[in-house]
């Protein structure tokens, strides 16, 4: 189902969910949960958005039923730790590549995914100052390195 333009802000979180469907279903589940909450705030009134969000809710309910034995899905406190660890793992991988002077698409994506997963952490409550700083840094790094590679420059 195509994403209504009003919900464009959640497209990357939904893509991350799709990419983790097999690799890490808990990541996929919480990315969709974040997209659901953010989407409802963006627009749940127009028919096209309502239709999209109802489908997304169906998908979330199906996932929760199918993954009933995953503690990180049945217990949000476990889910919170899981998403935070995963985001940190992504961040540290990209940061290590960055500090070693290895600039490539994969590390850009890891920085960006880490920043998206910090967004996802907001489903569990207010973000910590550290979360906010990590997100800001990761998003800036992803953009900066992407621009440098596109222009044939070496990132600093």
């Amino acid at each position: 189902m195509s994403l209504p333009p009003q919900l464009k802000a959640i497209q990357h979180h939904l893509r991350t969910a799709q990419e983790h469907e097999q690799r890490d279903p808990a990541v996929a589940y919480y990315c969709r949960l974040y997209a659901m909450q953010a989407g409802m705030k963006l627009d749940s009134k127009t028919p096209e958005c309502r239709k999209f969000l109802v489908k997304l809710m169906d998908q979330l309910e199906t996932m929760k039923n199918a993954l009933g034995n995953h503690e990180s899905i049945t217990q949000e406190i476990v889910g919170h730790a899981h998403i935070e660890n995963y985001a940190l793992k992504m961040f540290l991988y990209a940061d290590n590549e960055d500090r070693s002077g290895r600039f490539h698409k994969n590390m850009i994506k890891s920085f960006y995914t880490a920043s998206l997963l910090v967004d996802v952490l907001s489903v569990f409550g207010e973000l910590s100052e550290e979360n906010i700083q990590h997100r800001k840094y990761a998003r800036w790094k992803a953009t900066h390195i992407h621009t440098c590679l596109k222009n044939g420059e070496t990132p600093q």
């Binding site: 949960l33 909450q37 409802m40 009134k45 309502r50 109802v54 809710m57 309910e61 929760k64 949000e76």
Partner: peptide, 28 residues
Amino acid sequence: TGSVVGASVASTEQDELSQRLARLRDQV
């Protein structure tokens, strides 16, 4: 009147989504 009814339908559907979300998260 039509717009009032339309807004009421939208609001009910929105409530339904909110309720499903709360149930999903075991918050009810």
